[in-house]
Simulated scan of single mutants.
Amino acid sequence: MKYLIDFIVLGILYIFIFYKKWRLKGKAILFINTTMYIYLSFVLYFTLMPIIVSIPFIFNHSYVPMNLVPFIDVLSGRGDFIRQVGLNVIMTVPFGFLFPLTKKENSKFLKTVIYCFLLSLIIELLQPLISDFRAADITDLITNVTGGIIGYVFYLIFRPLTNKILEFIKDK
């Protein structure tokens, strides 16, 4: 139920703001931006939700500072670090692939990496504020950016195919 409120708000934002704006720009832009919106909604689900019901309690727990020792879990063998590293990389691969497609001009590698870094940094800084059981970790930041880089490589590899698909969508 707590998650439902967040998804309702995301749905309302999409329908009344983004859909109207993107629809006017054409089917291809609507398709890519909607895909990116859905992807980012799932990122929010896995990293920060529930958000809205957590807002009143943000200051009711202590903020644990970010762990600034890269790969400490890996080096000390704590927890399920291989799974965590893998999931953090996988989570941002779609961002690295989709972000360049959302731009009219060819998005540069550095711009994609910077936006992936900022997305990850914002998530990492907000996680401990929104929830007692989430922590910010520099390893997550590093692995998320790595995932974005891998996604960008996929974007470069599949750019001719995605251009054809977008042209097909545009013509329909």
Score class of each variant (00 low, 15 high):
Phe31His: 03
Thr146Lys: 00
Ala28Pro: 02
Met66Trp: 02
Leu10Lys: 05
Ser76Pro: 02
His61Glu: 14
Pro94Gly: 08
Lys104Met: 09
Asn106Tyr: 02
Ile82Trp: 06
Ser41Leu: 08
Ile55Leu: 13
Leu75Cys: 00
Asp73Asn: 11
Ile169Trp: 02
Asn106Thr: 12
Ile58Lys: 03
Ile82Pro: 05
Phe16Asn: 08
Leu68Asn: 07
Pro160Cys: 14
Ile138Cys: 09
Ile165Tyr: 01
Thr139Trp: 00
Pro65Leu: 14
Glu124Leu: 09
Phe133Glu: 15
Phe59Ser: 12
Asp132Leu: 08
Leu48His: 06
Thr34Tyr: 03
Gly79Ala: 07
Ile15Cys: 03
Cys116Val: 07
Leu98Ile: 03
Leu156Ile: 13
Ile90Glu: 13
Leu24Gln: 11
Gly79Ser: 09
Phe57Tyr: 06
Phe42Lys: 10
Leu4Met: 12
His61Gln: 09
Asp6Glu: 06
Leu24Gly: 11
Leu119His: 09
Leu121Ile: 12
Glu105Phe: 00
Trp22Val: 07
Glu105Ser: 06
Leu126His: 10
Phe59Leu: 13
Glu167Lys: 05
Phe95Ile: 10
Leu110Pro: 04
Arg83Asn: 13
Tyr152Ala: 09
Lys108Asn: 08
Phe133Thr: 15
Phe168Gly: 05
Leu48Arg: 10
Val69Tyr: 00
Thr92Ala: 00
Ile169Pro: 03
Asp137Ala: 11
Val69Pro: 00
Ile82Val: 13
Tyr63Met: 12
Gly148Tyr: 06
Phe95Met: 07
Tyr14Ile: 14
Ala135Arg: 11
Val145Ile: 15
Ile29His: 02
Ile90Ser: 10
Leu40Asp: 12
Leu48Ile: 13
Leu68Gly: 04
Asn106Gly: 10
Glu124Ile: 04
Val74Ile: 13
Ala135His: 06
Asn67Phe: 02
Ile32Gln: 09
Ile122Ala: 10
Val113His: 01
His61Phe: 03
Val85Gln: 05
Asn67Leu: 05
Arg83Gln: 11
Asn163Glu: 15
Lys20Tyr: 00
Leu141Gly: 05
Asp171Gln: 08
Ser107Leu: 03
Ile55Trp: 01
Met66Ser: 12
Tyr14Trp: 12
Glu105Lys: 01
Phe81His: 10
Ile29Cys: 04
Glu124Gln: 14
Leu126Met: 15
Val53Asp: 11
Arg159Thr: 10
Phe81Tyr: 13
Pro65Tyr: 05
Val43Arg: 10
Ile157His: 02
Met91Ile: 15
Ile29Lys: 03
Lys25Arg: 05
Phe95Pro: 00
Pro50Ile: 12
Asp140Lys: 11
Val145Trp: 03
Tyr152Ser: 12
Ile130Glu: 15
Tyr39Ser: 12
Tyr115Gln: 08
Gln84His: 10
Met91Leu: 15
Lys20Met: 01
Ile123His: 11
Cys116Asp: 10
Leu4His: 04
Leu156Arg: 15
Ser62His: 08
Phe59Gln: 12
Phe154Ile: 15
Gln84Tyr: 07
Thr162Glu: 07
His61Thr: 12
His61Leu: 05
Val85Arg: 02
Leu125Phe: 04
Arg78Cys: 00
Leu98Trp: 01
Phe154Met: 14
Val89Pro: 06
Leu87Ala: 05
Phe158Thr: 14
Leu98Ala: 06
Ile55Val: 15
Val74Met: 11
Asp73Glu: 15
Leu166Phe: 02
Glu167Ile: 03
